[in-house]
Write a protein that binds this DNA or RNA. Structure first.
Length: 205
DNA sequence: TACATGATGCCCT
DNA sequence: GGGCATCATGTAG
């Protein structure tokens, strides 16, 4: 984990683009949470793009409200919402201030602070397969990194003093798979889900 | 003020 | 493979 301190935090302009481009480029990057003295980190292996216009499944589709305000704000900010009475999901806003759009982080491959993640998830790591339970799913990774709406919604992930950010450690993705999005009813046919092909930490096949 | 809904995960079978 | 917990939000009345 010493390496993580040296790797580069993604700048605002990285997110100031179409969510589809941002989605593709976020694969292989590292989501990092500073938890006290410890760093919790996971490589992004699965994301979904949600567009500002022409995408009925996006929270921004019904226009700007108190809840989705972050989506309409500047790029690189965390949009965290509570779903099904149980789970938080982390999105990152894209495009310039005033233009909605985001990327949903759906799955991580744990790379640092694994013991703490297991503790946060209430998972015991007796078998190698248990690693998948840490952060393979949007609700799971939020719990593993202590991400909540109260704590993180609206947070600028590109700010130097943020305790939550996304970094580039130079990892190269070999092959990207683009599929239909998961768990939605509206616009279910749109292919806006991006996964690292063959990675075992994606939330489903 | 009431109600339907959902970008999920867990615990059964 | 299916039921269900559980609640913030938006919309209707």
């Amino acid at each position: 984990m010493e390496k993580v301190k040296a790797i580069k935090r993604l700048p605002p302009q990285f997110f100031n683009r179409d969510p589809r481009r941002v989605s593709r480029d976020l694969l292989g990057k590292v989501l990092v949470r500073r938890h006290g003295r410890e760093l919790l980190a996971g490589r992004i292996v699965e994301v979904e793009a949600y567009l500002g216009t022409g995408d009925p499944a996006a929270h921004a589709a019904a226009g700007r409200t108190v809840r989705n305000d972050v989506l309409f704000g500047p790029p690189g900010h965390a949009y965290v919402y509570f779903i099904y009475g149980n789970h938080y999901c982390l999105n990152v806003s894209c495009l310039p201030d005033g233009v909605p759009g985001c990327v949903l982080i759906r799955a991580l491959e744990p790379v640092g602070g694994i013991e703490e993640m297991a503790h946060a998830r209430g998972v015991s790591l007796h078998r190698a397969a248990d690693l998948r339970k840490l952060s393979s799913g949007p609700g799971r990774l939020a719990e593993a990194l202590h991400i909540t709406r109260e704590r993180d919604n609206g947070k600028n992930l590109t700010s130097a003093d943020s305790d939550l950010w996304i970094a580039d450690d130079g990892y190269r993705v070999r092959r990207v798979l683009i599929t239909k999005r998961v768990g939605i009813r509206k616009a279910a046919e749109m292919r806006l889900r991006y996964v690292i092909a063959g990675n075992e930490f994606v939330s489903q096949e």
